[in-house]
Write a protein that binds this DNA or RNA. Sequence first.
DNA 1: GCGACAG
DNA 2: ATCTTGTCGC
Length: 217
Amino acid sequence: MEIEELKKIQQECAKKVIQRDDFEKLITVGGIDLTFEDIKSNPTKAWASIVIVDINTLKPVYEDVVEGLVDFPYIPTFLAFRELPLMLELYQKIKIKPDVYFIDGQGVAHPRGCGIASHFGVATNSVSIGVAKTKLFGYYKEPEEKRGSYSYLTYKGSIVGAVLRTKDRTEPVYVSVGHRISLKKAIELVLRTSIYRIPEPTRLAHNLLQKVRKRLY
DNA sequence: GCGACAG
DNA sequence: ATCTTGTCGC
C-alpha cells in the first residue's frame, strides 16, 4: 500500500477522535504492549499482552496474551500499521474490557493527529490514552523535577499532549489523548496509576511479555 | 537541503 | 522494539 494512502487513513481517523470525557466510569485500566521474537526479520513472530488493573489497588485483575505474525516494518509516524493488527486480535480475545486503555505510543500528538493510541480507540470505539517513553511530535519545555509536574506538548499554537513527570527526578513520559477522554483526565489517570516511571498497567503488560518471549510463561 | 523520527 | 552485566544513585 502506498504511503499516501496510509496518510489518508490517518487523516480520516483524526476526524473521528473525540477529545473530551465520554465515559461512565474509570475503575479499570488496561495496559497493552507488544514484543517481537526477532525484530531483524520480517515477518517476525510477535506477542501482544494486556494487564488490567483496578485503579484503587493498582493490582492486576485480568491478563491475557495473543501470538501472531507481524509483517509491516517500523516506519516513524506509521507505527499503527505495524502494531495495531495484533492489538485488535487481543482486543477480540479478552473476556473483560477495561474502562480505558493505555497504549504505548502517541495519541493525537502525531503529525496527522492519529497516533496508534487514537487509532486503537477509534477502531474499537473505546477510551484510550497514548503513553510514550519518547517524543514523536511537538515542542515543549522541560517540566519541573517533581512527580506530578508537567508541561504541554504543542504544535503551531495548539496543545497536542503533555510531558509528565511520573516520578521524582526521572525522565518524563509523553501523554496524549487517544480517544473519548480529555487531556486533563488523561494526565490525572496516568499519574494516579504510576508508582514507577511507567504506569502500572503498561509496566506489568511489558513484564508479562518478557516472560512470554523467554518461554517462562 | 538538514534534522527529527512513537515502537 | 532488541542485543546485555555490572554499576551508580536514591
